[in-house]
Amino acid sequence: MIKSENIVIFEHPLIQHKISLLRDKATGTNEFRKLVDEIAMLEGFEALSDLPVEDVEIETPIEKCKTPMIAGRKLAVVPILRAGLGMVSGILALVPNAKVGHIGMYRDEETHQPQEYYCKLPDPIEERLIVVCDPMLATGGSAVDAIDQIKKHGGKNIKFMCIIAAPEGLEKLHKAHPDVQIYVGHLDRQLNEDAYICPGLGDAGDRIFGTK
């Protein structure tokens, strides 16, 4: 398995506990959504730890003081549709003023290759820190193609967040975009012959939206 300073695999007990609940096939749609939201917030807390700050002057009930506030580039959250939508609210809870873009991908069930059908990004995207999110990083095809599209539109400062990754997908994404910081909730064992993550948690989109 490749190792890089641009790959963070979380070991925090709260994240691991919530991922275990996600995996359980008995976990219903409502609880599943809440867990995805909570995990995205916990991961986002770490992924955004390098946001630039600047000292500004405010007045407390006691006195005036200089205190740090987020500065510099604005943030854009870009979920890969449709499952990535489940992670957006958790990130927005941390940075409510972030803009939200969307990249639509679906997986061809025969070739297992991603097919893009939609791309709408905040403008100007080149001035923003971009957080791409998708609960599952399986083959890595959708993530690679989504980031390809963002870079074609001028995006430069990009992070990728997922909840579960397969080694195959993580390696593919890192090799295609070594400049992108990747945050992984848990690295699973492998992909099966149908390109699903094992042990995984099934189809994240279906479980978030209650579809089959």
Rank of each mutant, 00 (worst) to 15 (best):
Gly90Phe: 09
Ala146Pro: 10
Lys66His: 10
Gly141Ser: 10
Lys120Trp: 00
Thr67Leu: 11
Ile125Cys: 06
Val131Glu: 00
Leu92Trp: 01
Pro122Gln: 01
Ile130Gly: 04
Lys151Tyr: 00
Asp134Gln: 11
Met105Pro: 12
Ser89Lys: 09
Glu126Gly: 06
Ile130Glu: 00
Val132Asn: 03
Leu121Glu: 00
Val144Ala: 10
Lys66Arg: 13
Arg73His: 13
Pro124Glu: 02
Leu129Trp: 00
Asp108Lys: 01
Val88Ala: 07
Asp148Ser: 10
Arg128Lys: 14
Val144Thr: 12
His102Tyr: 14
Arg107Leu: 07
Glu126Cys: 12
Lys66Gln: 14
Ser142Tyr: 10
Ile130Ser: 02
Lys66Gly: 05
Gly141Arg: 06
Gly90Lys: 06
His102Gly: 03
Gly140Asp: 08
Leu81Ser: 12
Val100Leu: 09
Ile125Pro: 05
Ala146Leu: 03
Lys120Gly: 01
Lys74Glu: 15
Ile103Val: 15
Val95Ala: 11
Leu121Tyr: 01
Gln113Lys: 15
Leu92Ala: 04
Lys120Val: 03
Asn97Ile: 03
Met136Glu: 02
Asp148Lys: 05
Asp108Asn: 15
His102Ser: 02
Ala76Gly: 08
Cys133Tyr: 01
Pro122Glu: 00
Val77Asn: 05
Gly101Ala: 03
Val77Leu: 14
Tyr106Ala: 06
Val144Trp: 01
Val78Glu: 00
Ala98Asn: 07
Gln113Ala: 14
Ser89Met: 08
Tyr117Leu: 12
Gly90Met: 10
Pro68Cys: 03
Leu137Phe: 13
Val88Asp: 02
Ser89Glu: 15
Glu126Val: 10
His102Gln: 12
Glu110His: 07
Gly90Glu: 11
Pro68Asn: 01
Leu75Ser: 04
Leu75Pro: 07
Leu81Tyr: 10
Thr67Ala: 12
Glu109Asn: 04
Ile150Arg: 00
Leu85Ser: 05
Thr111Val: 04
Asp123Gln: 14
Arg128Val: 04
Lys99Leu: 11
Asp134Asn: 15
Asp145Glu: 15
Pro96Asp: 06
Tyr106Asp: 04
Glu127Thr: 15
Ile70Leu: 14
Asp134Ile: 09
Val131Ala: 09
Ala143Glu: 12
Tyr106Phe: 15
Ile91Gln: 08
Lys66Leu: 15
Arg128Asp: 00
Ile91His: 08
Tyr106Ile: 06
Leu137Cys: 14
Val132Ala: 04
Thr67Cys: 07
Pro79Leu: 04
Ala138Cys: 12
Gly141Met: 10
Met105Trp: 05
Ala98Leu: 10
